[in-house]
Amino acid sequence: MVTAQFKKFIEAVGSATIENIQGLGNICQFIFKFFYWVLKPPFRFKLFAEQFYFIGNKSLFIIILAGSFTGMVMAYQTYFGFKLINVDSLVGSVVAISLAKELAPVLSGLIVAGRAGAAMAAQIGTMKVTEQVDALEVMGIDSYQYLAVPRIIASTIALPMLSIVFLFVGNVGSFIVGTVALLIDETMYLSKLGEFMFIGDLVQGIIKATVFGFLIAVIGTYFGFNVTKGAEGVGKGTNLAVVWGMISVLVLDYFLTSFLIQVL
């Protein structure tokens, strides 16, 4: 009895492992396909512009909202900790560095994964189950080049821009809370910011956001193309795109941080 249960357990672990390795292999193939198709004409600027507008402009409001409140909260939290050791003048620089290196790219990435990653999976998934993807192929149009490439390029370019907006409004929020509510001297706040914040911090955040943007779109479009079984499948694909998009941002953030700290 116990042996049979153990055998079943080993089988389940084995098949889950094989499935995950296969999935990883498929995503790698999917990425290689991008580098193949991105260089091949026709270049679809209109589709790119539409996606860039959707991912960039349409995410702007939520990015501004999230960025400003994150900056304000960070200023409060840092202030009360730093006041205990009498270094409250460093609030501005600490918030700015945290935002530049971590919070702006990661939180922007999570927002875009939830918003645009889900939309990509749902749009392509719906096209797949309603045979619109097949229709493209029958016409002689590569569905990957038509649907995935513009989305991946748009997301890769839009996310660093959104991250910069997040960083800017976050710092504005932090400055307002720091100087108006917490009464930190304005000149002190700004001089410490200039003293401790370096261009490398900014570059680190932009590199991270670029990688996250690429990955979120790859995952969103991958799950869209792999949708099966009608509306239920579209829902499942969308859900997987959001979950794996967010997990990838968080996990990759660790590896990118450990790498970039050494090179920048």
């Binding site: 096209m127 309603t130 045979e131 619109q132």
Partner: peptide
């Protein structure tokens, strides 16, 4: 002509 026309929505 596809079963459900497959028009781009």
């Amino acid at each position: 002509l596809f079963q459900y026309a497959a028009l781009f929505d």
